[in-house]
Amino acid sequence: METGTRGGTSSPEWVGLPGGLLTLRRLLLVIWTVPLAAGTALLLGLTAGPLWAAAGALWLGGLAWGWVLLGRNWRSWRYAERADDLLISRGVLWRAQTVVPYGRMQLVEVTSGPLERRFGLASVQLHTAAAATDAKIPGLVPAEAERLRDRLTELGEARSAGL
């Protein structure tokens, strides 16, 4: 569902997330489920018999299901810069769209944890006066995160100065 710009009929230009975030999340899924599958199969195989070792395959089913869900979730994330605000859309089953007016932004920060840095990713965190409207755009390339931070800060200062 795309929303037109204020006072006009054109749709905003949506930007999706780069693939590095999907790669990171899928790698974490594999890192957790494969050892759990092997451990479950080994433990049940030794204690309950070889037929029970097949229960470890349940984790592999969870891996396949999670692989698909992570892809759908990653594709649902997008953002659009409009004249007066930033739109952030996410969610597959429960869709959410956050509208953050530039004049309401108090702080825009770029964060990157150790795994994100390893994969060349950063997140943009937007803070407003109302805690309920704080928003985050995860998994951006650091250069894009910094560009977005600088642009949002500049627009926020310009809009708040006009109040």
Rank of each mutant, 00 (worst) to 15 (best):
E2T: 14
E2Q: 14
T3L: 13
G7F: 03
T9C: 11
S10G: 08
S10Q: 14
S11V: 13
S11I: 14
S11E: 15
S11C: 09
P12D: 14
E13C: 09
W14D: 01
W14M: 13
V15Q: 14
G16T: 06
G16K: 09
P18M: 07
P18E: 15
P18T: 08
G20S: 04
L21E: 01
L21V: 00
L24D: 05
L24P: 05
R25P: 04
R25C: 00
L28R: 12
L29W: 07
I31G: 10
T33M: 15
T33E: 11
G39M: 14
T40S: 12
T40D: 05
T40C: 14
T40N: 07
T40L: 11
A41M: 13
L43F: 15
L44F: 15
G45P: 08
T47F: 12
A48Q: 11
P50F: 14
L51P: 05
W52D: 03
W52V: 04
A53K: 02
A53G: 08
A53E: 08
A55I: 10
G56W: 08
A57P: 00
A57N: 10
L58R: 08
G61R: 06
G62K: 03
A64P: 05
A64Y: 06
W65E: 00
G66N: 06
W67M: 06
W67D: 04
W67N: 05
W67E: 02
V68S: 05
L69T: 10
L69A: 15
L70R: 03
L70N: 12
L70T: 03
G71M: 03
R72N: 02
N73A: 12
S76A: 05
R78F: 08
Y79P: 01
Y79L: 02
E81W: 04
E81K: 11
R82Y: 03
A83E: 15
L86Y: 00
S89M: 03
G91V: 09
V92Y: 01
L93Y: 10
W94E: 09
A96C: 11
Q97V: 14
Y102Q: 07
G103R: 15
R104I: 06
L107D: 12
V110S: 10
V110L: 10
V110M: 11
T111G: 07
T111D: 09
T111R: 15
S112K: 07
G113P: 06
G113E: 11
E116A: 05
R117N: 10
R118C: 10
F119A: 04
F119C: 01
G120Y: 07
G120N: 05
L121P: 02
L121H: 02
L121C: 03
A122D: 04
A122S: 08
V124E: 00
V124I: 00
L126F: 10
H127C: 09
T128I: 09
A129Q: 08
A131Q: 06
A132S: 14
A132T: 14
T133V: 15
T133I: 11
A135Y: 02
K136G: 12
G139M: 01
L148T: 00
L148R: 01
R149I: 06
R149P: 01
D150F: 10
R151Y: 07
L152Y: 06
L152M: 12
E154K: 13
L155N: 02
L155W: 12
G156Y: 04
R159K: 11
R159I: 04
R159L: 12
A161N: 12
L163Y: 09
L163R: 13
